[in-house]
């Protein structure tokens, strides 16, 4: 099945990002396709490379970047990103800043769009 993913909450403060990541890992293991991950609302904060995380905890933005390196597109909403200080200078590798139209495309091309939010 083709899954599109929407992440609406920021890292650490909320479980949404972890749940989305774990869902994607499980879906890939089962042979499903991830059409893309769209970061909206505070979800955009998942994609800053300025995170500096203690060694005994997961590094959420690095984890997303590594997933992007595997070829899964990571799309960060430009309007939401601008509000929250996320720009190309601080963006993790393997992600891109783009418009809400990309979320619309994910809705259209995926069999299911799974939202991870509050």
């Amino acid at each position: 099945m083709k899954f599109g993913i929407l992440v609406q909450e920021g890292p650490y403060n909320h479980q949404a990002s972890d749940s989305a990541y774990n869902f994607i890992q499980a879906a890939l293991e089962k042979g499903h396709e991830i059409t893309g991950v769209f970061f909206y609302n505070d979800g955009v904060i998942n994609t800053t490379k300025l995170m500096d995380i203690p060694a005994d905890d997961r590094h959420i933005s690095k984890r997303w970047s590594d997933l992007g390196a595997k070829g899964i597109q990571l799309i960060v909403c430009v309007a939401a990103a601008k509000r929250r200080g996320i720009n190309p200078d601080v963006l993790i590798e393997n992600a891109r800043i783009d418009g809400l139209g990309q979320l619309s495309e994910l809705c259209i091309e995926s069999d299911r769009l799974i939202t991870f939010g509050d």
Binding site: Y40, N41, A79, A80, L100, G101, L103, S104, C107, I108
Partner: peptide, 19 residues
């Protein structure tokens, strides 16, 4: 919270995709 406002922003963009 910003949910309603950003939801509305998304809604307006989605309208141009003729779904």
């Amino acid at each position: 919270t910003i949910y309603a406002y950003e939801g509305l922003e998304a809604l307006l963009i989605f309208c141009s995709y003729e779904q």
